[in-house]
């Protein structure tokens, strides 16, 4: 797979002496679904903001499709390739109706009116918000607002979407809506998804999990490999999904066969298999 975003020896600090990111090397490939985990203050949110040039690295290079994010001439191009969705749904909707908001980025890019209309309608249908296109944003639920924010980004036809804790302020229904929408985009449109989260069950659905700690990468592997390291994750203020923990406990205390399960169904199946075998 082609490399889309590449970080080379990236360091970042907001004020001198306080390093948030320390010589980070990491790559994101086209079409991947990557979850980024880390406790508050681990630098994961800073990482997200470096990916579309909102923040510039203090040292090192961030390359988006080969373009350094420090090139002011090409920032628009970078932001069209890497779309960004933020945590608070209320603070990223600009316009007073859903469709006008979805059109915002395309208007900024100077796209022709008929083309904007076509892409706005398509984006809203993709996130299942087309029926709400005339609604004012404050009448929507949290999950709906976040889907509008996603529509506003995918209208640009980006190759990658970075979501910075998009579900932190949502209820379980809203969380599910957002994650399903994002997975669907990744699957059907091949959009690279970089999901910053502190919900372990969301990370378990990704292709790859990056765990951040103290400004560096602690783990970078498949969810199964990462969540198998329960003790290590707990020691850096993280967790594993409850089913994963339950099964690992059973391995330790009940002599169950070693395995890493990621959700209740897998967990139950593995247990069933073991009990049948006796």
């Amino acid at each position: 797979m082609e490399t889309l975003i590449k970080l080379e020896n990236v360091s970042f600090s907001y004020e001198e002496g306080k390093t948030v990111l320390d010589r980070l090397n990491i790559e994101f490939k086209q079409g991947e679904f990557v979850a980024v985990l880390g406790h508050n203050g681990s630098g994961k949110s800073t990482l997200a903001k470096l990916l579309n040039g909102i923040l510039e690295p203090t040292a090192g290079k961030v390359l988006v499709s080969g373009i350094p994010t420090t090139d002011p001439e090409r920032l628009k191009e970078i932001r069209r390739i890497v779309g960004m969705v933020f945590q608070n749904p209320d603070n990223q909707i600009v316009a007073t109706t859903v469709e006008e908001d979805t059109a915002f980025a395309l208007e900024n890019l100077g796209v022709e009116p008929e083309e904007i209309r076509r892409r706005v309608d398509e984006a809203l249908k993709r996130v299942d918000m087309y029926a709400y296109r005339q609604h004012p944003p404050h009448k929507l639920s949290g999950g709906q607002k976040q889907r509008v924010a996603i529509a506003g980004v995918i209208a640009m036809n980006p190759r990658c979407i970075v979501l910075d804790e998009p579900t932190a302020m949502l209820d379980p229904k809203g969380r599910k809506e957002v994650i399903e929408t994002v997975k669907e985009l990744n699957r059907t449109k091949g959009v690279t998804v970089i999901l910053v989260t502190h919900y372990m069950d969301e990370a378990a659905q990704a292709d790859r999990v990056v765990v951040m700690d103290q400004g560096g990468v602690l783990l970078d592997d498949t969810p199964r490999q990462v969540f198998g390291q329960m003790e290590l994750l707990k020691s850096v203020g993280l967790d594993v999904p409850p089913s994963t923990e339950l099964y690992l406990d059973l391995v330790k205390t009940g002599g169950f066969e070693l395995a890493v399960v990621l959700n209740p169904t897998e967990c139950a199946e593995k247990i069933a298999e073991q009990i049948r075998r006796g």
């Binding site: 628009k76 932001r79 933020f86 603070n91 600009v94 980004v153």
Partner: peptide, 27 residues
């Protein structure tokens, strides 16, 4: 103020650079 800050970031992320070269969906 916090909202204004975050909104500014969100607008920048969606390629907003002022009125120059902007088009509108609704003619």
């Amino acid at each position: 103020f916090k909202r204004a800050d975050e909104l500014a970031l969100a607008m920048e992320s969606r390629c907003y650079t002022g009125g120059e070269g902007r088009t509108r969906m609704k003619v």
